[in-house]
Nucleic acid binder design. Structure first.
Lengths: 151, 151
DNA sequence: TAATTATAGTTTAGCATCTAAACTTATTGT
DNA sequence: ACAATAAGTTTAGATGCTAAACTATAATTA
């Protein structure tokens, strides 16, 4: 295509463009089911849910919805599927009989750990190509981004 | 919940955790339709498509699919919708009568520009809270990430 | 040249993910 | 006790994607 025809060729905006490509990559990743442990194929939404549960140990549907940034209805549906796959289990919450505590089964914990291991390896790979100082600045930037997007 | 029960409490992994939260934020963002220009409500997939077209000026279905990292079928469906919204138009490609060139209508260009403007403002906001050096390191890290995820 | 193979794009069926809203059941506040 | 609120479930419908079958054109090869 004719590159002179581009609507945008602002050189100041190169960083924004890299970020844009990263978004597309992440969108692609977030569509790809994967195997974690021997739990079979797990979709991105499922693994995020497992991550949220595993991080807390046990969590209410409510809290999980807030953590994931989705409605309680969405979480309810996910938990049905994860329970069917025997990755999570429900138990009652002593202080409020309406509430339901979700926790990981042994199989779920395996998947959780395999996923964490993957994260750690990924991060190690990044660390191996950057200095300690660069990593710290990167993390600071990520925190800033998190702050902006919070709203 | 009992924080001592956490499956993961590795302090070395804090950066990975921030990155995880960023992913969740982005997932949430990427579900939210927005208004750009006076083109009405535009979904994330639609705006990514418009961005890909606008950046090149005119592009083949084929190339667009590669750029977005989706199948040609997905692009075909998106273009149908964007054409119905009068944001893009099809024209024939001189060298190959099978191929179809997609470009933006005036309304599409408006949406494109409004979206770019948003990106630039977002990036300016980030820049205002970081030093020039920090920005450069951040961009380097983004490039690294892009490299990793390419595979 | 005629037949085969490859390529560009479209269409369709089906899956995954989510929301909004209606619903059930339990809790809280007056 | 009663009304309002809160936790979770269910359902219908939107979105966004893939895989695979399909049409039409182009390129290759026998």
């Amino acid at each position: 295509m004719d590159k002179n025809n581009r609507l945008q060729s602002n050189p100041m905006n190169k960083g924004s463009h890299s970020l844009g490509r990263l978004f597309l990559q992440l969108r692609r990743l977030e569509r790809q089911p994967q195997n974690f442990g021997n739990a079979g194929s797990i979709t991105p939404s499922e693994i995020h849910t497992i991550e949220g549960i595993g991080y807390e140990g046990a969590i209410l549907m409510n809290e999980l919805a807030t953590h994931l940034g989705v409605t309680k209805g969405a979480v309810s549906q996910l938990i049905v599927r994860l329970e069917a796959k025997q990755l999570v289990m429900r138990s009652s919450y002593p202080h409020d009989s309406r509430a339901i505590l979700i926790s990981l089964t042994e199989k779920g914990k395996e998947a959780y750990k395999a996923h964490e291991e993957m994260h750690i390896q990924f991060y190690d790979q990044l660390r191996s190509e950057l200095s300690q100082e660069e990593i710290e600045i990167f993390e600071k930037c990520i925190e800033k981004l998190n702050g902006f997007l919070q709203k």
